[in-house]
Structure formats: C-alpha cells, structure tokens
C-alpha cells in the first residue's frame, strides 16, 4: 500500500527532514508513526499525499510512483486517501454536513448519494445530530470527529492521521483510536502519526519510530509486547 525506498527530504532552507527512510506498509495494516515533534512525522505524511515531493528516493502509494506523478494527477491520488489533520482543516463558514460532504462533492456524487453517505459517516463518528451546526459551535473532540468523518466519507482505502489526539484528553483520545481500529478492521490501511506513547503502546500495533529524520526502529506488535513486559521502551 505504502512503500518508501531510500527516501530523503531536504527543504529549500537546507534542513533535512527525512534521510534515507525505508519501509513497506501492506494493505490492511494499521501502523503508528512515532517520534518527537520535528522528527519528520508530518513530512513523511506530506510525502504520501504529495503535499511535498521527495528530494531523493521513491515513494509508492498503491503502486503509483509519486515522484513521477504529474501535477494534474495529484487530486486523483488524494481522493483515495482520507486524511485527518491535527488542526482539523475544517471550513468554519460551512456546516458540519457541508464539511463532510466536500470530498463527495469534489468526486462528483449525486446530492442524494452525498446525503446518504454523509449521514452514515456522521453517525459512525457519533455526530448524527450535529450536521446542521457550524464547526465553531463544537468542542475540540467533536471537531476532530468531523475531520474523521470527512476523511472516511469517500471510503478511501488508505487513512492517514497526523496527531489526531494531539489536543484531546485521554478518554477522548481512546475514543478516537477506537474509531481508527474499527476502520482498520474493515480493511482500511491506517497510518497514524502520534507522540502519545502511552496510548500507542496500549494499542499493540506495528510502530515506525522516527528520530531526526531517520527511521530508528520498525517494531512489529509482538516485539512491542515483549518490550513492554521488560518494562522498558
């Protein structure tokens, strides 16, 4: 589903955000991307949705080499990837319904179909009764769930999340993670960038640990359990 092959990313100002990162995430997997802030997590996600291009190496998403992707083909790639942003990226002058409907409108769905899918997605994240409200009237956790509904409404095969629990209390964070697990259970590949180690460790999933742009560790779930039993990280 996602393959990084010796990927480096150097920003114009000279900072190297990623250096020679290698990994492969098969379809249907659920993976956490961890590391301190500034370790390169956001850059890695940006490369997957072609907000940035790799300076060196190859990025493949669903078999497509993103380095060779023409600018006009970027929208098609993004439509099949649901993204949950740390700052939500909601439109505050549009209702919850309109926010969630945006990807469907872009993809050219009939209004009837849009209504059906948006309500299903909002029900899924527990906001069925808020569709007519403006995002500003919602709490941080609710806004985040609007963002999740928008990310999954087009039924993408890949779901990315950048610090989805960043500003939430532990209880809300667990709820959000639970939602991601449910999507993963039905076949969606999920990649979540987070530095909330306590939460991640409880999830017992594969972890990619980034440190100063390098992939320090690629830990499968079982190893993680063993590490936990030893009581260290």
């Amino acid at each position: 589903m996602i393959r990084f092959d010796q990927v480096s990313k150097r920003y114009p100002e000279g900072r190297e955000a990623l250096s020679r990162v290698n990994f492969d995430i098969p379809a249907g997997d659920m993976v956490f991307l961890t590391g301190k802030s500034g370790a390169g997590k956001s850059t890695l996600l940006k490369l997957i949705i072609v907000m940035e291009r790799a300076s060196q190496g190859q990025v493949f998403v669903q078999g497509t080499n993103l380095n060779r992707l023409a600018r006009r083909n970027i929208p098609a790639i993004r439509r099949d990837i649901g993204v949950v942003f740390q700052n939500h990226q909601l439109l505050f002058d549009r209702t919850v319904f309109e926010n969630v409907a945006l990807p469907l409108t872009i993809a050219g769905y009939q209004p009837r179909e849009v209504g059906r899918r948006v309500r299903a997605a909002l029900a899924k994240v527990g906001l069925g009764d808020k569709e007519k409200q403006l995002p500003i009237a919602l709490s941080g956790g609710e806004q985040q769930r609007v963002g999740i509904a928008r990310a999954v409404v087009n039924k993408p095969s890949l779901l990315l999340a950048d610090e989805p629990t960043g500003n939430l209390d532990p209880g809300l964070s667990a709820e959000i993670m639970n939602l991601f697990e449910q999507f993963n259970q039905v076949g969606v590949t999920v990649l979540i960038a987070s530095h909330d180690l306590a939460l991640i460790n409880r999830m017992n999933r594969r972890q990619l640990l980034l440190h100063e742009g390098r992939l320090l560790e690629d830990r499968p779930p079982a190893t993680l359990v063993a590490t936990d039993l030893r009581g260290g990280l």
């Binding site: 099949d80 299903a120 527990g126 039905v186 076949g187």
Partner: peptide, 21 residues
Amino acid sequence: PPRRPNLQAATRVVNKADGAG
C-alpha cells in the same frame, strides 16, 4: 453510535476496499 449501523458502514467500506487500486 449504536453497534449495528457501524457494521453496516463497515461492510460498505470493505466492499470499497476490495476494489481498491
């Protein structure tokens, strides 16, 4: 949300995922 609608939504996502790519 109640459990049942979740599963229905989930089934649809699976169908989509089958055709992914």
